[in-house]
């Protein structure tokens, strides 16, 4: 078990982070080059003011018409996205591990707060799952991958919660926790989870085109 722990917390973590950051860079650069070649007008029409205007309208709940039309989903989605970033990054246990490895640390959340945020993420994932299974249009749009991705997103939070509360199999679950998070990080750039960074470009471009060329709102 030590060998597995060492492997998962060491080399595999490096692989995951390299794939994550490398993947993001690869996707952004390859798309930038492809856009230059085949969609050159993106560069022509891009307007930072209008891009940010649009991004801001879509990042906050109730700032767009569609968001106001679906208050429950808007709130769940907003909380989900905040927690999925804030909880892991500002978790004491994670910062401690990073501090041990790299001697850097930063502000962390009280464990109780992180615990609630984790539950919120898990709850949101369950909400998304139910929505995917019960809403006909979403069900139609979903393929197996959508469910797998949802499970992969939930996995680190479920295992993290499990490990923190020291339920049975805590050591194994700690390893699974690291492993699932590594898988998640590694696939983000190469699946539709890449909306994590592409969102800013798709929304930004639509905002630019609507705002600077069409003189219309896009929210």
């Amino acid at each position: 078990m030590h060998a597995i722990y060492n492997f998962v917390s060491g080399p595999l973590a490096w692989v995951a982070f390299i794939l994550f950051f490398g993947g993001i860079l690869y996707q952004l650069i390859s798309r930038a080059i492809m856009a230059k070649k085949k969609d050159a007008f993106i560069y022509e029409y891009w307007s930072f003011y209008h891009a940010f205007r649009s991004i801001l309208h879509w990042i906050f709940p109730f700032a767009s018409t569609n968001s106001r039309n679906r208050p429950v989903l808007s709130v769940v989605t907003f909380i989900f996205h905040i927690c999925i970033f804030v909880a892991p990054i500002f978790l004491f246990a994670h910062i401690t591990l990073i501090n041990e490895a790299f001697n850097v640390s930063w502000w962390f959340l009280p464990d109780g707060v992180a615990d609630i945020m984790t539950l919120l993420v898990i709850g949101a994932c369950i909400f998304f799952l139910i929505r995917r299974l019960t809403q006909p249009d979403v069900k139609f749009l979903s393929n197996a991958w959508d469910y797998v991705l949802l499970a992969l997103v939930a996995a680190p939070f479920v295992t993290g919660y499990w490990a923190y509360h020291q339920w049975p199999g805590n050591q194994l679950v700690t390893i699974l926790h690291m492993l699932s998070a590594e898988i998640l990080l590694a696939i983000i750039p190469f699946t539709k989870l890449n909306h994590m960074f592409l969102f800013f470009f798709t929304r930004g471009y639509m905002g630019s085109e609507f705002g600077a060329v069409r003189f219309a709102r896009d929210w």
Binding site: R31, M34, V138, K192
Partner: peptide, 20 residues
């Protein structure tokens, strides 16, 4: 090859099928 650029790829592949 000639015309399917970054927009097409992103528009089709990044959709998370949320139904919104």
């Amino acid at each position: 090859d000639a015309e399917g650029g970054a927009r097409l790829k992103t528009y089709v592949e990044t959709c998370v099928s949320c139904g919104l």
